[in-house]
Amino acid sequence: MKIRPLADRIVIKNVEAEETTKSGIILTGSAKEKPQVCEVVAVGPGGLVDGNQVEMTVKVGDRVLIAKYAGTEVKVDGDECTIVRQSDILAVVE
Score class of each variant (00 low, 15 high):
Met1Arg: 10
Met1Trp: 07
Lys2Arg: 06
Lys2Asn: 06
Ile3Phe: 06
Ile3Val: 12
Arg4Asp: 03
Arg4Cys: 01
Pro5Asn: 01
Pro5Met: 01
Pro5Arg: 02
Leu6Cys: 00
Leu6Asp: 01
Leu6Ala: 04
Ala7Ser: 08
Ala7Asn: 08
Asp8Tyr: 00
Asp8Glu: 07
Arg9Leu: 05
Arg9Lys: 10
Ile10Met: 00
Ile10Pro: 00
Ile10Cys: 00
Val11Asn: 04
Val15Leu: 14
Glu16Gln: 11
Ala17Arg: 13
Ala17Trp: 06
Glu19His: 07
Thr20Gln: 12
Thr20Asn: 08
Thr21Ala: 11
Thr21Asn: 10
Lys22Glu: 12
Ser23Arg: 12
Gly24Cys: 03
Leu27Thr: 11
Leu27Glu: 07
Leu27Ile: 11
Thr28Glu: 11
Thr28Ile: 06
Gly29Phe: 13
Gly29Asp: 15
Ala31Cys: 10
Ala31Asp: 14
Glu33His: 13
Glu33Val: 10
Lys34Asp: 07
Lys34Leu: 08
Gln36Trp: 01
Cys38Asn: 12
Val40Arg: 03
Val40Phe: 00
Val40Glu: 03
Val41Pro: 00
Ala42Phe: 01
Ala42Glu: 11
Val43Lys: 05
Val43Tyr: 03
Gly44Glu: 00
Gly44Thr: 03
Gly44Val: 01
Gly44Asn: 01
Pro45Trp: 00
Pro45Asn: 02
Gly47Pro: 01
Leu48Lys: 13
Leu48Asp: 07
Val49His: 02
Val49Ile: 13
Val49Leu: 04
Val49Ser: 03
Val49Met: 05
Asp50Trp: 10
Asp50Ser: 14
Gly51Asp: 05
Asn52Asp: 14
Asn52Gln: 15
Asn52His: 14
Gln53Lys: 15
Gln53Ala: 15
Gln53Trp: 14
Gln53Pro: 10
Val54Phe: 01
Glu55Trp: 09
Glu55Cys: 09
Glu55Phe: 12
Met56Phe: 05
Thr57Gly: 06
Lys59Cys: 02
Lys59Met: 04
Lys59Gly: 03
Lys59Thr: 09
Gly61Glu: 06
Arg63Lys: 15
Arg63Glu: 08
Val64Pro: 07
Val64Thr: 06
Val64Phe: 09
Leu65Ala: 04
Ile66Lys: 11
Ile66Ala: 05
Ala67Leu: 11
Ala67Asn: 10
Lys68Thr: 13
Lys68Tyr: 14
Lys68Trp: 11
Tyr69Phe: 15
Tyr69Asp: 13
Tyr69Lys: 15
Tyr69Trp: 14
Tyr69Val: 09
Ala70Met: 09
Ala70Tyr: 09
Gly71Leu: 11
Thr72Gly: 08
Glu73Met: 13
Val74Leu: 12
Val74His: 07
Val74Met: 10
Val74Gln: 07
Val76Pro: 07
Val76His: 13
Asp77Asn: 15
Gly78Met: 04
Gly78Asn: 11
Gly78Arg: 05
Gly78Leu: 03
Asp79Cys: 09
Glu80Tyr: 12
Glu80Thr: 15
Thr82Ser: 11
Thr82Cys: 11
Thr82Trp: 08
Thr82Leu: 10
Ile83Gly: 04
Val84His: 04
Arg85Trp: 02
Arg85Thr: 12
Ser87Cys: 09
Ser87Asp: 09
Ile89Asp: 03
Ile89Cys: 02
Ala91Trp: 03
Val92Phe: 02
Val92Tyr: 02
Val92His: 01
Val92Asp: 01
Val92Ala: 03
Val93Ile: 15
Val93Ala: 07
Glu94Leu: 04
